[in-house]
């Protein structure tokens, strides 16, 4: 029984990763030099996807970012986790704003049919707008703040893109509260604040956390776009610079890092979420 679990949770995923690396290796391209008859050398590209660096080459070229993950050599030459950390900090701030805005809006939507009729259409219209579209507006809105405009515009973009899952899930959760629980509040004549904190919030918590988890995923998606546009230092900005420098191995390292960090954030949130599922 235990060994089956070990196989399912560790051995098989590791095998899958190994298999993917192998496929990556097989399809990736390489540049080889060839000595021509006239004595000069010629560089030619080989492989199925000629411009895709393979895993070994990626490791070789990017190891300095990985083995010293927190190093700071220059502004644009830092360890990969240091870049990631810069991004996480601003994501955390924007995400916090998203939750602080999204949760009460969700409660209002769930509790008040009038509020829903008034604002639901607007929410449905704003929700699918891409971060790339919000970003310029954000920067313009905070242009008056001078140097902070980029930073505030980034926060604005992360917050407004990430808050929708929180808004919608909270609203669904509030609407799903069993009438029985509300009857308890009515029979006991609980005050509004008591009803909110003793009944409504605990009953909605599982839904709220589902929203929080999805919002965090979006906040992390948005950061890359935001950093590309603003030039704010971070993992997304690193990726963009290295693209401009033609260093494709760094792009791959960034993608892997963004993916792993996103995965870990999601795991952490679902652990939290599960704690509240009992309710």
């Amino acid at each position: 029984m235990r060994s089956k679990k070990l196989i399912d949770l560790l051995v098989l995923p590791l095998f899958g990763i190994g298999l993917s690396l192998l496929i990556w290796h097989l399809i990736s391209g390489a540049t080889v030099s060839r000595v021509l008859p006239d004595g000069t050398t010629e560089e030619i590209k080989t492989g199925l996807v000629k411009d895709l660096p393979g895993p070994l080459m990626t490791w070789e070229k990017t190891r300095k970012y990985v083995v010293e993950p927190f190093a700071k050599r220059e502004d644009l030459d830092q360890g990969i986790l240091r870049f990631t950390w810069y991004s996480l900090v601003i994501v955390a701030k924007g995400y916090l704003i998203a939750l602080l805005l999204g949760t009460p809006i969700g409660f209002l939507l769930g509790l008040s049919p009038l509020f829903t009729k008034l604002f639901d259409p607007i929410i449905q219209i704003l929700r699918p707008v891409s971060p790339l579209a919000w970003m310029p507006l954000g920067v313009v809105l905070f242009a008056g703040t001078g140097k902070a405009a980029n930073e505030l515009g980034a926060l604005f973009t992360i917050a407004i893109c990430a808050m929708w899952p929180t808004v919608l899930n909270t609203a669904v959760g509030v609407r799903a509260i069993p009438q029985d629980y509300l009857n308890v509040a009515r029979v006991l004549k609980l005050s509004r604040t008591q009803t909110l904190f003793k009944i409504l919030v605990p009953a909605t918590l599982p839904y709220m956390f589902t929203g929080y988890r999805l919002s965090l995923g979006i906040a992390w998606l948005v950061i890359v776009a935001v950093e590309m546009l603003t030039g704010r230092i971070g993992i997304g900005n690193f990726l963009w610079n290295e693209y401009n420098n033609g260093l494709y191995t760094s792009i791959i390292l960034s993608i892997l890092t963004i993916g792993v960090v996103g995965f870990l954030l999601d795991r952490a949130m679902s652990l939290l979420e599960r704690r509240f599922k009992t309710a």
């Binding site: 029985d180 009857n183 009515r186 029979v187 004549k189 605990p202 309710a279």
Partner: peptide, 19 residues
């Protein structure tokens, strides 16, 4: 005129708050 704690109610399912 409305609900109130002067009437104790026991429902078929006890409606306890699970949290």
């Amino acid at each position: 005129t409305g609900p109130g704690p002067d009437r104790g109610v026991v429902f078929q399912s006890p409606n306890l708050l699970p949290w």
